[in-house]
Nucleic acid binder design. Structure first.
Length: 823
RNA sequence: GCCGAGGUGGUGGAGUUGGUAGACACGAGGGACUUAAACUCCCUUGCCACUUAUACUGGCGCGCGGGUUCGAAUCCCGCCCUCGGCACCA
């Protein structure tokens, strides 16, 4: 290929990025370029990042990656004719601010506001197109008024309740936690302490009522990554099966059999099983140590067991174990037979022993199981150890335990029936119910800490729990002397008598405020809605605005695959049910981003001393450089290590773009025009699908060609528009230098001239026997015989055809020619 | 164990309705400019063999082993490894 080289020497022009950034950031602000017109008639596009927690450490270069992507995407959409909403806000309640406040003796609000100012400055340095008129902050009383309002609605609908069940308690953070706040090994995700089970009064949200809908509606989320949906499915953990009652008989104190319940009804315990088809093989029953029946049976006032002491000791020992010890499948099974009581297998009437064992979990299903050792690995191991009969009921050539399906045996009238069919049939015979159970537990919603939204209820001696009347919202967080957690299970708010003691809204009698606060995740469970209508004082959101702007069109973030996204989906569905929103899901499309590691391949952390502050990169290399670089690093969803060399590569690219403005030509080769239109198409398609790395690469390819072959002012201007979303400062500057009107960011995105995309000649690869041997350049859509004769004229091809006869010709027009020879 | 995503040069990565693998960038080597260095620019750069040669040419190459096909990074079968979610969940 011919290359007419311009001498790049003379092309090199450096520019003062600091000057340009300062100039245009000021101009953008002054002209209100990025203001959103919520009432615009244009089609809307709501592009949102997961808003940050404003930590004292500030941003490192990894944080802005997602923000850059949404900035580019929303700028592109604006150029494509949409009215965009691309806001930013602060998730500012939570433990770190509170801990910082305790340590440094400042009010958390003061610390957080300082951090926000720092974050905002860091973001502004990168040239983002946020409309700060739409900023929100979860700690503003005008915001959390509506967080509290949602809680009241949940309470009203019976979806918030108080529970005294043992919950996760972090001894270091001194607060209760939700299951979602724990690591896999049962430690606190925030401080790493081993979490304890502790019974205490808690507010709990009935998220399980929404489990089925949250699971089913995942299928409507066509624009979500599969792995996120899968993580949510796993978290919800639905199992389908049956609940079947097992009658108990007392053998040690037979008189107890005739004297149960007010109507003499028999005692029966329900078990949950996914394999009701194996009921005939159930040779014992197991209860979790925390099962209420067990608790009752070992109570001192009861005396129906033969070995109460022994069972009691086992239960006590089980409670001493940590979560990890309890849930380690590898360890040998332990348990104790409950003597003096047997269960009746409802299928065949056999008397089977009852055990208490900690391999059965109280929090799942009914906390009791029917054990089928022949067809369950765990039951098999347990049965072998305790010498319990093993009865095979599913026919299989495999060895036991076998947990697959097959024709039944030893199952009375069901012999020969297939497992699947037998599930419903056997359940029906024994009067059981086909049910589902979930791994997901209700959301433990109260924290015994200061820095959170007060839960808006009042406890009255006479009336019990009384919601704070809506017109008294927000219940504002009072000033306190000390933020330290009390450790007693009471929040620090409990010490502020003048705040706690109120009169009951119902009876006017003496009452106390709820002193627990909401978890960190409350404010972020609905914040996206508030961006649309941030200053509304009379409603959470104006219905008309909601109708136009919800849901979020593109939501971008990493992490939070379950927690935040589960909670937000839950609240959104609730808001749908009470008529606040009109869609069943909050986020139409989700883009998951990969993180940026430090140059040494480790996570960026103060601990390793490898943190890079974007401010330093902006100062040294420019905001446009870091923007282009972070998009060029690799696929958006990939986690990649920072590379200063790569950054410099992006900077060189921008400097060459800038330098080219001094070397524009009056004409350009057709090839450059054609390439420009290919580039327009490629960049538009790639931004739409979040493939920013290949969009940048396409622009680099165009720049290389334009430098080598020449480019006109018009084409160069078009190219600048493609680059504008990525590098908003220098493109604005160059746009002005070309003599155009302000602003490049309000230009329509260039149109592709489709006629330019089809070149008149094509280069076709030529294969001999499937191996590439040469290529021919020929007019588009050339006839097969012309391509073959052109290929036969190619010496490289000819060499491989020598002395051979062409048996077969495979020709894919404009793509490939394959000559197959005999011999 | 179950489920999901992935494995391509020295590096980040292109390319998957099967059709010229390695675009673009980084790094490296060589050269121009410079008193010198930096910057900038030009050339080379998957591996191996042959060769005075970086020229030709041939062979091998997308985790491994098979298969389908004129043709496989792409489709099928069987493995291995990495990352993520769940996990004594009945």
């Amino acid at each position: 290929m011919m290359k007419t080289m311009h001498n790049r020497d003379t092309m090199h022009t450096t520019f003062d990025h600091k000057e340009i950034e300062k100039k245009w950031q000021a101009k953008w602000k002054e002209s209100g370029l990025y203001r959103t017109d919520i009432d615009s008639a244009k089609e809307k596009m709501f592009v949102l990042d997961m808003f940050p927690y404003p930590s004292g450490d500030g941003l490192h270069v990894g944080h802005p990656k997602g923000y850059i992507a949404t900035d580019i995407y929303s700028r592109f959409k604006k150029m494509s004719g949409y009215e965009i909403l691309h806001p930013m806000g602060w998730d500012a309640f939570g433990l770190p601010a509170e801990n910082f406040a305790i340590k440094n003796k400042v009010h958390p609000r003061v610390a957080v506001e300082k951090n926000i100012a720092n974050f905002k400055a860091q973001l502004d340095h990168l040239g983002f197109n946020y409309d700060w008129e739409h900023e929100i902050n979860t700690i503003d009383p005008s915001y959390y008024k509506w967080t509290q309002w949602i809680f009241l609605k949940l309470l009203e609908k019976g979806l918030a309740y108080q529970s005294y069940e043992p919950i996760n308690w972090c001894p270091s953070c001194q607060t209760g936690l939700a299951n979602e706040d724990l690591e896999n090994d049962g430690t606190c995700e925030r401080c790493g302490s081993q979490v304890e089970k502790r019974p205490m009064r808690q507010w709990v949200l009935k998220i399980t009522d929404y489990a089925d809908r949250m699971l089913a509606d995942l299928d409507t989320l066509k624009k979500w990554p599969e792995h996120i949906k899968e993580a949510q499915r796993n978290w919800i953990g639905k199992s389908e099966g049956a609940t079947i009652d097992f009658e108990l008989q007392f053998t040690h104190k037979p008189e107890a059999n005739s004297n149960r319940g007010p109507n003499g009804e028999k005692a029966a315990l329900p078990v949950f099983t996914t394999r009701p088809d194996t009921l005939y093989g159930a040779t014992y029953m197991v209860l979790a140590p925390e099962h209420p029946w067990v608790t009752l049976a070992i109570d001192d006032s009861h005396d129906v067991l033969k070995n109460k002491k022994e069972v009691k000791a086992y239960v006590a020992a089980a409670q001493q174990k940590t979560e990890i010890e309890r849930t380690n499948a590898e360890k040998e099974k332990t348990g104790v037979e409950v003597k003096g009581v047997v269960a009746i297998n409802p299928a065949n009437g056999e008397k089977i022993p009852v055990f208490v064992a900690d391999y059965v979990l109280a929090g799942y299903g009914t906390g009791a199981i029917m054990a089928v050792p022949a067809h369950d690995e765990r039951d098999f191991a347990f049965a072998r150890k305790f010498l319990i009969p093993i009865v095979q009921v599913v026919d299989t050539p495999h060895s036991l335990p076998f947990d697959g399906a097959g024709p039944l045996i030893n199952s009375g009238e069901f012999d020969g029936m297939n497992s699947e069919e037998a599930k419903a049939a056997i359940t029906k015979k024994v009067g059981g119910k086909l049910t589902s159970t979930y791994r997901l537990n209700d959301w433990v919603f109260s924290r015994q800490r200061y820095w959170g939204e007060p839960i808006p209820v009042i406890h009255c001696e006479k009336c019990g729990v009384v919601p704070v009347p809506e017109d008294q919202l927000p219940v504002t967080l009072p000033e306190v002397e000390h933020y330290e957690p009390t450790g007693t299970g009471e929040s620090p708010l409990a010490a502020i008598d003048e705040w706690v003691n109120v009169s009951c809204p119902t009876c006017d009698g003496p009452a106390k405020r709820e002193t627990n606060t909401m978890p960190q995740w409350a404010g972020s469970s609905w914040y996206y809605l508030r961006f649309i209508d941030p200053k509304n004082e009379t409603a959470l959101i104006d219905p008309k605005k909601e109708k136009k702007w919800a849901p979020v069109d593109v939501y971008v973030g990493g992490d939070h695959a379950v927690r935040h996204l589960i909670y937000a989906r839950f609240w959104h569905k609730f808001l749908y049910d009470i008529g606040v929103v009109h869609t069943i899901e909050p986020f139409e499309r989700l883009e998951f981003l990969g993180f940026i590691l430090a140059e040494d391949g480790r996570k960026m952390s103060k601990r390793w001393g490898n943190v890079i502050n974007p401010d330093d990169i902006v100062a040294q290399h420019g905001a446009d450089t870091i923007r282009v670089y972070e998009m060029f690093m690799g696929p958006f969803e990939n986690t990649t290590a920072w590379s200063t060399n790569g950054l410099v590569g992006a900077q060189r690219f921008l400097e060459r773009v800038y330098g080219l403005s001094d070397h524009l030509s009056d004409t350009e080769p057709e090839a450059v025009t054609v390439l420009l239109h290919k580039t327009i198409k490629k960049v538009a398609d790639d931004i739409e699908s979040f493939k920013f790395n290949t969009a940048v690469s396409a622009m680099m390819i165009f720049l290389n060609a334009a430098e080598e072959q020449g480019v006109t002012k018009a084409s160069y201007g078009t190219f600048l528009k493609l680059l504008a979303a990525f590098a908003p400062h220098i493109t604005e500057e160059l746009w002005e230098r070309l003599g155009n009107d302000y602003s490049i960011h309000e230009q329509p995105f260039p149109e592709v001239d489709e006629s330019k995309l089809t070149e008149s000649t094509v280069t076709i690869g030529v294969q001999v026997n499937g191996r590439h041997r040469g290529s021919v350049t020929i007019s588009r859509d050339a006839a097969e015989k012309d391509v073959v004769s052109a290929a036969q004229a190619d010496p490289d091809v000819l060499r491989h055809l020598e002395g051979k006869e062409i048996m077969k010709v495979i020709y894919v027009p404009n793509r490939i020619l394959n000559l197959v020879t005999g011999g």
